[in-house]
Structures are given as structure tokens and as C-alpha cells.
Design a protein around this nucleic acid. Structure first.
Lengths: 194, 194
DNA sequence: GCTTGTATATTCACTAGTCGGTATATATTG
DNA sequence: CAATATATACCGACTAGTGAATATACAAGC
């Protein structure tokens, strides 16, 4: 599904990514994206048939890097699966302290497009979140954990809750609290603990 | 903090509430709110000094009704605190099935205003979420539960995660899953269960 | 090695409409 | 008269998207 990226197309998506994430898709004009990419709006419309398509391309471009980031934190952490899961949250809390952090681009886009459930970007976002949940369930099921799918879904709920609440309170403690709760749920389903 | 509501002011806020929740604050023009309220834009600007203020008034008007809704579901449920907490989620899953349901207005507004942390509506939203967490902690601490504040925060995380994920997948199962996880966390901290 | 043809890629200038906000005038009411 | 509340009409800036011309690259024909 990820389109082939001509150099120009990549420049446009890169510019859109910076602006859409920083300001929100609704507050960024196509003109602004074109200017940031260093080309005219007409050229942008040669490569994308509409702003909606550009939004979808923006999210599509974040799918794999995002998953790799999470998997990297998970893999790098020492200890059992509870510690590895908690490490994801700890790292999220760290990056969330940066002033440029503005939450999860997928969730914020979904919030802006809530009235348009069939929007192409919504499908991309839904697939991304499903991919993450699936990856997490796979990691859990490889580590002697009961009900790995249920657990993965609960961890996803805590993580997306942390993203959302952090946006409203701007307090990383919520991400840490989510991490502790997630680790607790992992331990509750670890067969070794019985 | 809730402003006195003249009849005209109330009509404006009612119209804004319907439109902002249905479409998102960024996609609704002040003209549209005025038309829905049955008056001119100039009159609207007589009662509100800016659109930003109107957005804040919209959220402020949802604070108490929202809390009462949650408390009503909690109080009406039979059984222990785990069942009462889970009842909130069950009721949320029910209303979320309605096609007009578009998630949590506070979270969606926060997502749209992520680049403006000092926006007046952000403060209203933050206070609302804090009120809910505080109420929940109070209910928990009155029922022989360990670490009621921590538990309340975890439940809030699961609930806001459910709101967000539901918007992206449009699948109420996530809300039910969050409810089960919340009930499990309540039981894990119930002193009676020891 | 030229020239011509063709597809790709880009630009300028523009449309028709919307945005938040306001200047000014006028009712209504005590 | 004075305060409150409403309406008409408008502003400059910005919006997504497009028409028409043009530049660039590269291949085929001679």
C-alpha cells in the first residue's frame, strides 16, 4: 500500500508530516505544505489528487517508523515482558517531555476526522493501530503469557489513554502511571508468577 | 467559573454544542453557529468576545452533565465497586453504538488544540478530566480499596484510551475490553478479596 | 549527431467561496 | 435619555482546487 516515493513526492510528504503533526491537519493549508516543500501548490496537486490523499500519505509514512520505534524500545529493555512493556511507556514519557511533542499523530488525526469515518486517512490509522496491537500480542504469546490478545489490547488501551490524557494535562506522570498499570497486567498473566 | 446564562447566551452555547461535537471545532464556522442559534453573527459576538471563548463555553457547559451521567451509571449499578466501574464502560459502549456518537468532546477538542496548550478551552478540559478522576478516587476510597488515587488514574487511562481507539476502529469491543480491565484492576486492589 | 515526438514534471495566475471579526445603524426597554 | 441587544453589510485574509502554458528528459527516426 505505501506508494512509491519519487524524490518530489517524498519532499512533499516530509513537509506535510512536519506541519500536520505540529499544527494539526485542519490548521495547515495546502499552500503552507507546498511552500515548506519548496514547490508550488500546482505541483503538489500533480502528485496528490487532494488534501485528503496527502493526509493519508502522511499517516502511511509514519506507520513503519512508529512501529520500529516501539519495537526498538521493547527489544532494548532488559528483564521480563513486564519490564519490556513498561520500557515502552518510560521512553514515551521521556520523548513526551519535549516541547515539540504533540501526542500521537494517528489519534489526533482521527479526532479531527471523527465526522468522516470513511476518510482514507482513517483507514490508514486503523490499520496502523491494528498492526501495533498484533505485534504486541505476538511478543506476548512468545513469552508464556496467558491470553496474549486480551493483554495486548489492554496495553494498547492504556497507551492511547496516556497519549490523550497527556495532551490535555501536559503531565507525563500519566504515561508513567499507564506503564505501571500495563506492567501489572503483564505480571498478572505471566504463567511463571503462579 | 460557569458564566451566567442569559437566554440568548444559552441558545448560542446549545447551538455551538451540537455543531462542535458533531463536526469538530475547526470545521464549524461562527456563521454556522449563529445561523443554528437563529441570530446573526454580530449578536453572537456581542455575547462572546471570540470563537475561542465560545469553544471554552461549549466545554464548560458539558462538564457537569458529563460528570452526572457517569455518576448516574455508577450509582445505578448493582454489586461491588468492580461491577459499578464496569457498568460505566458498559453504558459507554451502548451509547457509543449510536451513529451520532463522536467520542469524547473534551479529548477531541484537546487534539485539535494540541498546538495551543494555553487555549482557554484546554484549561476547561483539563479541569473536567481532573474532576472526574477526583470523583472516581472518592468513590473508591469510600469502599475499602487500596491506593484509590492510583486506581482512579488507571481507570481514567483505560476510559480515555477506549474513547480514542473507538474513534479510530469504530468497534465498541474496545470499550468492553477496557471495562473488563478496569474491573480487574479494582478487584486487585479490593481489601475484601485478600 | 541532429531533430522531432511524447510523457513527465513544473510554474503562474486564477476561481469561487469561506474565514473570524467589525463598523455602523437601529431597535427595544427602563 | 441611556443601556442593552439586535441587524445589515462589509473587511482583508485565507481556502482547496484548476486551466493553460511551459520546462525537462529521453527515446525514435533519419
Amino acid at each position: 500500500m505505501p506508494q512509491e516515493l519519487s524524490p518530489t513526492r517524498k519532499r512533499i510528504v516530509d513537509a506535510a508530516t512536519k506541519l500536520f503533526y505540529a499544527e494539526g491537519i485542519g490548521r495547515v493549508s495546502v499552500d503552507a505544505v507546498a511552500e515548506k516543500a519548496g514547490l508550488t501548490k500546482r505541483t503538489l496537486y500533480y502528485h496528490f489528487k487532494s488534501k485528503d490523499d496527502l493526509i493519508a500519505a502522511y499517516l502511511d509514512g509514519r506507520d513503519q517508523p512508529n512501529l520500529k520505534q516501539m519495537a526498538g524500545w521493547f527489544d532494548a529493555a532488559e528483564g521480563g515482558p513486564d519490564r519490556k512493556v513498561e520500557a515502552i511507556f518510560t521512553n514515551l514519557a521521556r520523548v513526551a517531555r519535549h516541547p515539540k511533542w504533540k501526542g500521537c499523530g494517528f489519534l489526533r488525526t482521527a479526532a479531527e476526522l471523527a465526522a468522516m469515518p470513511g476518510h482514507p486517512a482513517m483507514k490508514v490509522g486503523s490499520r496502523h493501530k491494528a498492526n501495533f496491537e498484533k505485534w504486541l500480542a505476538g511478543e506476548m504469546s512468545g513469552r508464556s503469557i496467558l491470553e496474549p490478545q486480551t493483554l495486548a489490547r489492554e496495553i494498547v488501551l492504556l497507551m492511547d489513554g496516556a497519549f490523550s490524557i497527556m495532551l490535555i494535562h501536559r503531565n507525563p506522570d500519566y504515561i508513567e502511571a499507564a506503564g505501571h498499570a500495563a506492567a501489572m497486567l503483564v505480571r498478572a498473566r505471566s504463567q511463571d508468577s503462579a
